[in-house]
Each structure stands twice: as C-alpha cells, then as structure tokens.
Design a protein around this nucleic acid. Sequence first.
RNA 1: GGCCCCAUCGUCUAGAGGCCAAGGACACCACCCUCUCAAGGUGGAGACACGGGUUCGAAUCCCGUUGGGGCUGCCA
Length: 515
Amino acid sequence: MQPRSRSVQARRCAALPRLGRLRAPSPRPVATLPAPMSAISDPSAPLAPRVRFAPSPTGYFHVGGARTALFNWLLARRLGGRFVLRIEDTDRERSDPAWTEGILSALTWLGITWDEGPFFQSERRHLYDAAAKRLFAEGRAYACDCSPEAVRARTEQRATPGYDGFCRDRGLAFERGRALRYRVPDEGMTVVHDLVRGDVEFQNATIEDFVIVKSNGDPLFVLAVVVDDLDMAITHVIRAEEHLPTTPKAVLLWDALADGRPLPAFAHVPVLVNERRQKLSKRRDRVAVEDYRALGYLPEAMVNYLALLGWSPADGREVLSREEMIEEFRLEDVLRSPAFFDERRLLHFNGLYLRGLSQAEFIEHARPFLQGEHVPWAPGRFDASVFAALAPLVQERAGTLGEVPGLVAFLFVEPFEPDADAFAKAISSDVGAGPILQATIAALESVEFSPAALRQAIEEVAERAGRKLGKAQAPIRVATMGRATGLPLFESLEALGRERTLERLKVALGRLGSL
RNA sequence: GGCCCCAUCGUCUAGAGGCCAAGGACACCACCCUCUCAAGGUGGAGACACGGGUUCGAAUCCCGUUGGGGCUGCCA
C-alpha cells in the first residue's frame, strides 16, 4: 500500500466539488486473517467511520494527546462518523478520576466533542474477563506463575529478550495469583497495515508471549483495547506512534476474538517532541493543555496550530477555521516524522486569532483575566468601562489574554509604583527628564484631556526641550504608566484622567529631586 | 542489546522523477510606517544528513551508512 499515492487521488477528487466527500474511505486493511468486506452487515458502515480517543487518566492532559484527539475528531467529522471517548483506567494504581476531569474539561475547551461516552474501562471488567476466559479455554492463552523477577533473571541469561515461554506447556489452571499470557505463534509474521506508514511487518518470533491479564486479575490494556474496539465497532484506530510496537499484539488478539470481523484501519501519527526531540512527557515538559488555557491562549488558535503539526491541507493554507479543517483533513496526508511543539509559533497563531476577534468578543474573552482571582490590582479596583475604552489598543498588542492585565495595570493598581529599571533608565539617568516632567505638569494643568489635545501639548513640550516626540514621551510614559513600553501614551493618559496623571508626574519629579 | 519508525531552512512544512538555481509560515536581521511597544509592509540570510545505485534526468525510487526517536512493564 502506498499511502502517499492515494492522497494524490484524494487531492484530485477534492478539486471536484462534492466528489471529495463521496470518495471511498480508506481501504480496510486486513492482517493475518483476510476478512471480506461483506463482513460488515451495515451497508452504511464504510461511509460512517467510528473512531475513538482513549486516554489514560494518569496525569494531566498534554498537547500531544490533544493533537491525537483532534485528528480523530477531524476524521469523524469529515466522514460523518462517530467519535467515541473511552477512558482507559485499567491500571488502578495510577488512574485518578481527577485526571479524567482534566481530560474532559480540556477537550470541551478545545471544542473536541464526543458523540459517545465517556466509557470507563473500569466499568467494563466483565467483558475483559469473558474474553480472557475464552482465550484460555481455546488454548490461545495460558496461565503463568512466573514472578517478574524470575522472568527477568532468566531473560538476562538469554540472547533473545522477552518472556521465554516457561509456562507455555505446564498446563497451569487459570486462577488468582497467576497471569494469563497470549500464546504467540513461533513462526510467520504479522503485518500492520497503517494508513500513515504503509505496511509494517513484525516477525512473530520477535514477539514474546505477552501478558493479557495480571496476576491480580486485572486485564492489561492490550486486551482491554481490543475487546473494546471490537465491542464499540471501531473502524479507525488513530493514535500516537508509540503504540505501533504493540499493534501486532492487538492484531493477534483481534484475530482470536473478532470471529472474522475485519480489523480496524490503523493510523499511527507521529509523536510531538520537545526541543531535544524527545517524546513530549508529562513529567519533563510543561505542556498541559490547561496551562495554555490559563496563560490566555484561545482554543481556536490552539486547535489550528495543533492541526498543522504533522498535517497540512492540500492548498498550503495555514490559518484554517474548524470547518475548513474538517473539509480538508485527510489521514493520508499526515506526515510520518515527529514534530516539535513550538510555543513561538503557537503564540503567532494566538495573536492572529486574538486580533481576529470583534471588540466585544475580545472584551468578553479578556474578562476572566481581568476580574478573576489572580489580578494584579485590589478587588473592586477594576473599571470595565475604562478598560473597554482602551480595549482595541490592548487587543492589537496582546499575544495572549494573560498579557492583558499587564498592559492596563497602570489604570487600576493603587498605590502606583513605576518599574524600577524603567524609572532608572528613562528618568533618573536622563538629565533632560526633570525639565520635561516639569513642563508637562504645567502644560497638562489646563489642557483638555483628549488624545489629540494631549498630543499637541506634549509635542510642544518636546519641541521646547529640543527633542523628538518619541524621546520626550519616555519619561512621561514611565512616570504615568510605569513601563517603558505599552499602550499609546495619549489614549492612556486620557483614560487615567487629569488628576492621577498630574499626581504621578509630580511624584516622579519629586522622587527625581530627592535623589 | 533486540524489534520498529523517521530524516527538506533553527522550527512547522510544500514537494508525489523534469514545472526546483527547492516555495510558504514562525523565529531572526535590515528598512518603511510610527508618540513607545506591537500590528502591518518591503527586503535579506537560511535546508534536500552522507554514500552508492536505478534513470536521459533524483529532494522525490532502491540499497547501505550515519543520526534521531519509539517500544522493549503483570504502564497506557
């Protein structure tokens, strides 16, 4: 199978209106046991894929998981299929409902909605037990009482890694305290037909007799995944590349349990990596979706950026609405190499989306960052109408919503305290600053507090000081706004008002004089 | 170590044997615009990992090398 060649076809079809959508779905790959298409009883099934996103609640939800969820979601939406959410919490030691909450809220925030679920594997135990019992009864799996230590000790003696099949023919009964292992064929190969990578071959001899039920009776994910994918009639398994090595095991189990039902199509998408090109890790890398939300990234920007990691639309556009992504998304166009999660680029997209908001939308989005728990000013100091007046200027400059409070803090933080470094640079160490502050105070006593009038007054101050406006406004800006950069000065002073402006200028001048 | 995957500017990518003296975007640099900072505009620097094949012709196909990554759990 040549995935890339199919995508040529996809693009040509897409060029013809409507035809792209009617294009037949990806060929249904079959593994060791070929299964006929007719095995699907529902004739509409091939056109209505069922995908699943199956995170394990063992840590916060990171952007890599979000990207995988997004690809699943895009495929389901494009082909009119169903997106199933399944929580893989078979590991009772590490799973925590709190993490599940985080996953659900992050997906919701991103607008990745699920059609079915969330299903919890912890509530489906009977299905895995039944499958295990069947595999054991049919001789496809056997009980094993080797301790992990014993297995490891024996493995170290041998050249080949993995379990050595010690219990294969001991005929042990399947009971508590014993694990269940799948009897992998010694010969032959298992082929994974992957929509992203093509055929990947695994020699069965290199696959150990893997555990499918722990000695405490809990199922292992390999078994649970296959049982659920079968039970939920999943047609496309889209997941991260790290799952590729376990896929032949899943294929083997599928063949043993599916009663001829065709294998789902597999698509192993590349992992997201950090700057050292290692797989993004919850422990190493600070990449929780919730963190980006808290920093003031917009979900639309995040989704747009994430979609472009490992995928790009045929026409090369980069700014895509959700609808456009759905329309353009092709699994066959997903790349095979890992992508670096670049916050700089995310920031760029965020700025684009922030500026694309209407003024009202922007104000609405900024509200939680201005009136929430962690604002830099005392509660109650915030004045929504003052902010609204400056909002367009803020919107133009903010890269994230989290930057918004900093841009308007000078209006609401009392007592006001200019940044020490900025004060030192623009006022203390500038011999011309004193006279300018002095002249500005005099000029602003009576001038109308409108941007135009303020500009004219300060231009005159600058001229008398023999400076360009840009140089003259620096000490005024630091004295009144506390920072060397930020919102335009005249609009800011208008919002601040005459009284506070003059007071701050005088305080700055006084501080200069007492140095 | 074993199995598997991957390889185009620093980064994300376009590229499907001739349309490629390799295009776009982010970041970077310069200039323009400009009350600061942004935004915007213009320009610049910057890549086919290496070696063999195949072919009239290779970023593109094949093989090898190198490099990177994933898996190698009674985690998912």
